[in-house]
């Protein structure tokens, strides 16, 4: 049976995981959800509404903090004790560590970055874009247990309104799994206008060179009546606030126009903005992956181009 790791946050099952559940349910056979946490029994019941025929629940104080290693213990036990041979994950900071730890623990194949999954006479085949999405690779599994991680936002949840059979697990934790502890979980408050609703986004990355150069991006955004966004690298470096971050961690945006300034365009960024209408990229590195998915790519110095463009926009609008 296929089981889907259902990540949750503040009492909500995450949309990405419910999307993977919907995909798994489409493959034909009964699908299980797995909910791991503390005080999560209610959540488990809710998974039935999104296509899970069964929900395995481990409700344990050791699973309270979203740390990976106790979850590896619980999922390894699930595979050993129940009729589960495949576990699917929507990628996240947490689930990547869980899936990778589980692969090592069970000697199980892990395919990641998948955008689709098909069943070919019971053999699962994953689809994985590679080399900046220039090749689509069909990947498979050769062991007894199969693990897969999907790109965020790949599938939408489907509300079926069903009811799941809830099965309790009593996980045993190994010594090293509970050594890491969560000291703080500081959840960013949203500040300023939300980038999720903006029609135009001008985004800045490490190629800006310094936090001060965000003023170039801000001026262009203002001229276009748009919002300013940032990449994870510059947010982590403290150049710009977390609320403006686009990407795998951070926000998913779909403006009509997205202008990327000094952004190399790693896959983690792409998944947050690939729904944009028109993408323009300005970068001095001609090999930057962002050019692979920009409608207009400009190889050049953004310090020259962006202020000139701001001026032109102001003149012409």
């Amino acid at each position: 049976m296929i089981a889907v790791f259902l990540e949750h946050h503040e009492g909500e099952l995450q949309k990405g995981a419910l999307g993977v559940l919907a995909k798994a349910a489409q493959l034909g056979d009964e699908v299980a959800g797995v909910v791991l946490g503390s005080g999560v029994k209610d959540l488990a019941a809710r998974a039935g509404r999104f296509g899970a025929a069964k929900v395995f629940v481990a409700d344990d104080p050791a699973l309270e903090a979203p740390l990976p290693q106790p979850r590896v213990d619980a999922l390894a036990q699930l595979v050993h004790e129940q009729d589960v041979d495949t576990i699917l994950f929507a990628v996240s900071v947490l689930s990547a560590d869980v899936a990778a730890g589980l692969a090592a623990r069970l000697d199980a194949g892990l395919n990641w970055d998948l955008v689709d999954l098909a069943s070919d006479n019971g053999n699962l085949v994953g689809k994985r874009p590679a080399l900046e999405d220039t090749v689509y690779v069909d990947v498979g599994w050769t062991g007894e247990t199969r693990l897969a991680m999907f790109r965020p936002g790949t599938f939408d949840p489907v509300e079926t309104g069903g009811e799941a059979e809830v099965i309790d697990l009593s996980p045993q934790f190994v010594d090293f799994s509970t050594q890491a502890t969560m000291l703080e979980q500081a959840h960013a408050e949203s500040e300023g206008p939300s980038i999720e609703d903006a029609d135009v986004i001008v985004a800045g990355g490490r190629g800006l060179g310094s936090p001060e150069n965000f003023s170039l991006v801000e001026a262009l955004a203002k001229a276009l009546g748009g919002a300013v966004a940032a990449t994870r690298a510059v947010v982590d470096a403290g150049w710009y606030p977390y609320a403006t971050q686009v990407g795998q961690t951070g926000k998913t945006v779909s403006p009509k126009l997205y202008i990327a300034c000094g952004i190399s365009g790693a896959i983690q960024h792409k998944v947050g903005m690939q729904g944009s209408g028109v993408v323009i990229a300005i970068n001095k590195d001609p090999n930057a992956p962002i050019f692979e998915y920009a409608d207009l790519g400009v190889v050049g110095d953004l310090n020259e181009i962006v202020p000139k463009l701001t001026q032109l926009v102001e003149q012409r609008k």
Partner: peptide, 28 residues
């Protein structure tokens, strides 16, 4: 290893991308 590569395929078709080098007129 416990994973395998079964086949290589072309990516789905996408619109034509335009890439230019700045010669001083990129902003225009």
């Amino acid at each position: 290893s416990r994973t395998s590569v079964l086949a290589l395929n072309d990516p789905p078709a996408r619109g034509d991308a335009l890439k230019i080098e700045d010669d001083g007129s990129a902003a225009e």
